[in-house]
Simulated assay, not measured.
Amino acid sequence: MVTKPVRLLLVEDNPADVDLILDALTNATVRSRVEVANDGEQALAWLNAVETLPDLIFLDLNLPKMGGLDVLQKLKQTSRFKRVPVVVLTSSQADQDVLKSYDLGANTYTCKPLNLNDYRQVIRIIEAFWFGVAQLPPDQK
């Protein structure tokens, strides 16, 4: 179980989805510090600029400038980033997106729920697993 605040990177271009995820994390049992990147290029730039990497990345696939699959590929091909767990959180239910995400090293693939209560529940489940059950890599520089 994680007792310190966790660091999250949310890569999401839709402000409504950002608000939903931040709202769900506000009510979470684990304290978190969340950085938001609105596109893939911004996410990679932020990751390259920080000293300590996030504990978990929430990654949408449908992003401007650089799509989520391209971001995922770069993350998992870069030795500094490849151990950071990536939760694909997207509206796409396309089999090809699911398969490609796992082929590129996604740790899980989750479709965005359609209503607010389900959205909160999904975020709580992700939080409970990654910060209550899973053993995360130690702080990564």
Rank of each mutant, 00 (worst) to 15 (best):
A49M: 03
G40I: 03
N117F: 10
N115H: 13
Q121T: 14
A28R: 04
N27P: 00
Q77W: 01
V122E: 09
L61H: 07
Q135L: 12
D60G: 05
D97Y: 12
L10E: 06
G67N: 15
T3H: 12
Q93A: 14
L25D: 03
I57Y: 03
Y102W: 04
G67W: 04
T3L: 12
I57M: 10
A45T: 15
P5Y: 05
T29A: 12
E35W: 05
G40D: 08
I125F: 02
M1F: 06
G40V: 02
A134W: 01
Y119Q: 09
L8S: 00
F131A: 05
Y109I: 08
N48Y: 00
L20A: 15
P54V: 07
V122L: 12
L10K: 03
S101C: 08
P137V: 10
V6G: 01
P5A: 04
N27H: 14
T90F: 05
F81N: 03
Q73S: 14
R80G: 06
E127N: 13
Q140N: 10
E51N: 13
L9V: 06
K100I: 01
A106L: 07
K4G: 00
W130L: 08
A16M: 11
T78R: 02
S92Q: 11
N48D: 14
L9S: 09
N62K: 14
D103A: 15
P138T: 05
G68C: 05
G105Q: 08
R80I: 11
L20N: 11
V86A: 03
I57A: 07
V98N: 02
N38K: 12
A134R: 13
P15S: 10
K100T: 15
K4Y: 06
P138D: 09
E35C: 07
P54Q: 08
L25P: 06
P138R: 09
Q42C: 01
P138Y: 04
L75K: 05
L10C: 07
N62L: 13
I125V: 11
F81V: 07
F131D: 04
I125S: 12
Q73R: 15
L59I: 03
V6F: 01
L20P: 02
N48F: 01
Y109F: 15
P113I: 10
L53T: 11
D97F: 10
D60T: 04
T108M: 11
K82E: 11
F129E: 10
A37T: 01
V98D: 01
K82Y: 14
